[in-house]
Design a protein around this nucleic acid. Structure first.
Length: 507
RNA sequence: GGCGCUAUCGUCUAGGGGUUAGGACGUGAGAUUCUCAAUCUUAAAACACGGGUUCGAUUCCCGUUAGCGCUACCA
């Protein structure tokens, strides 16, 4: 069926932020096209003028780029140009295309005018419910005589245009699900063009428009969400009416939240923009989305770069069943890619989260930025996403000895006699020391304290760590102490080691 | 109500007429570390139910149940 080049499209509505579900659809389209050496088309379905907004279109373009997805045809940049020979690629600019096609269908007697009023249709609908039958259009106007049609037209009666559905089942091939078949009577004659209102031309309906766009853009494979499965037979009928080749379909399952409901804001982050703001790396998101509804051929590999995915991806291996979005697994992937990311990149990304804690970025303060880079290097590996960094590093900046004492989980450690002794010893050494505390000095202190008190291991380190950080866990002292001391020395809002001990033990 | 789609560990999935039903996330245990994280080792954990077909079904078929989608002159 597919002679020539594979052409796929991603056709989002710019009515909001790019949702992960749509992002996955975009990704799978892109992967399929790239692997096959085909063409990836971006088409903006902005015919819903009420809800479409230009800012969402530019956001969408930004989000796709951020994920690393590019397109061969479609809009280029915010309000700029388009590329590709099958444009326009904004649906709102294609309206004139549809009218001529509708005339053609009417002339060929493949469509007809329907004069039924909304009230009549509603009555039919109610009757169908009462009779437990399928709620479909009866096809009444299909049987109108030409004379009646002429008369109605002359009387200025508003009409919609409906497609004539034939007798044979509507079939299509779905790469994910196999052959799908719908009985023609379950579809009934669908509206193609709404009736005109007060001088405005009749607006074509979504199912009609996508089909025309896909056909005219020579789309060979329609990869989209499975909420469109029930629309597909209607679209197949439209292809047939025009005599256009029916493309192959691949309907991707829905992404659900933990409660098995469609993933929505209720479940937390859902838009690509939000994930980016939270400090997820695009490669983590791409990898995760790749795994959500698709599995590698060996059944084992989980880590994929975009390039590796491109090599491994086939639509045949896409799972038909709905998938629950697992933030934990995404976090695991993100941690993985954070470890792989360059320090420069992480530092630059993390900088935005420290607005209030560091002086504004200033070229003259290279030393501050270098210090910040060390901070990031030390803490980034222990964080799920970068926006957790300020909280994770907060003890480096402010030191609250009262809070440290008050913290419930510290009580037991601090209550031990050995802890008291250790801290007294530590305070003695800190008081008689006037320089910055280097790791060497610190190590010597701890050895001395160990020798003097006989306290070792956990009993030694835990109270010390609490006195220094207020917490029982954190990075190695070897790395942490220089960071604190250098931060204090730079005049940053960082409490020095000496002050910490003095505050905590009391002078 | 009608039509359609779906159904393997808690989650994402591999598999497929005979398997110890595999991997990953998460969870438990252990090793390591002052601690946390990381890392390594390890454990627990699944074929929705009922009928067929078959020597044999988790796998194929039918039904049930459940979830989801569509059922608009929405997109």
């Amino acid at each position: 069926m597919t002679t020539g080049k594979i052409r796929v499209r991603f056709a989002p509505s710019p009515t909001g932020l790019l949702h992960v579900g749509n992002a996955r659809t975009a990704l799978y389209n892109w992967l399929f096209a790239r692997r096959a050496g085909g063409v990836f088309v971006l088409r903006i379905e902005d015919t819903d003028l009420e809800r479409s907004e230009a800012r969402y279109e530019s956001q969408l373009i930004e989000d796709l780029r951020w994920l690393g997805l590019d397109w061969d045809e479609g809009p280029e940049g915010p309000n700029v140009t388009e590329k590709g020979a099958y444009g326009p690629y904004r649906q709102s600019e294609r309206l004139k295309i549809y009218a001529g096609l509708t005339e053609q269908l009417l002339a060929e007697d493949k469509a007809y005018r329907c004069f039924c009023t909304p009230e009549e249709l509603a009555a039919e609908h109610q009757l169908a419910i009462k009779q437990h039958g399928p709620q479909v259009y009866s096809g009444r106007c299909r049987r109108l005589s030409p004379e009646t049609v002429e008369k109605n037209l002359a009387a200025g009666m508003p009409f919609a245009v409906r497609l004539k559905i034939g007798m044979e089942p509507l079939r299509f091939r779905d790469i994910v699900r196999g052959a799908v078949e719908f009985a023609p009577e379950a579809v009934s004659d669908p509206i193609l063009v709404r009736s005109a209102k007060e001088g405005e031309p009749g607006m074509p309906v979504y199912n009609y428009v996508v089909t025309i766009d896909d056909a005219l853009m020579k789309i060979t494979h329609v990869v989209r969400g499975d909420d469109h499965i029930s629309n597909t037979p209607r679209q197949v009928a439209i292809y047939k009416a025009f005599g256009w080749p029916v493309p192959e379909f691949a309907h991707l399952s829905t992404i659900l939240g933990a409660d098995r409901e469609r993933l929505s804001k209720r479940h937390g982050a859902t838009s690509i923009a939000t994930f980016r703001e939270m400090g997820y790396l695009p490669e983590a998101l791409v990898n995760y989305l790749g795994l959500l509804g698709w599995g590698a051929e060996d059944g084992k590999t989980e880590i994929f770069t975009l390039a590796e995915l491109t090599r491994a991806f086939t639509l045949e291996r896409v799972t038909p069943s709905p998938a629950i979005f697992d933030f934990e697994k995404l976090n695991w992937l993100n941690r993985h890619y954070i470890k792989l990311a360059s320090h420069e990149r992480l530092t630059a990304l993390a900088r935005d989260y420290f607005g209030g804690m560091l002086p504004a970025k200033d070229a003259a303060r290279d030393d501050v930025e270098a210090w910040f880079a060390r901070l990031v290097r030390l803490f980034a590996p222990s964080v799920d996403h970068l926006d957790q960094l300020p909280a994770k590093t907060s003890f480096v900046f402010g030191f609250d000895h009262e809070a440290a004492r008050a913290r419930a989980e510290n009580a037991e450690v601090l209550a031990a006699d050995s802890a008291r002794t250790v801290l007294t010893e530590l305070a003695n050494r800190v008081r008689s020391h006037s320089a910055w505390v280097t790791p060497e000095v610190f190590k010597a202190w701890l050895n001395d304290i160990k020798a003097a008190t006989g306290v070792n291991g956990k009993e030694l380190f835990h109270p010390v760590r609490i006195a220094l950080t207020g917490m029982q866990s954190g990075p190695d002292f070897d790395k942490l102490l220089p960071l604190i001391e250098d931060g204090a020395a730079l005049g940053l809002p960082v409490t020095s080691v000496q002050s910490r001990v003095e505050q905590f033990v009391g002078v």
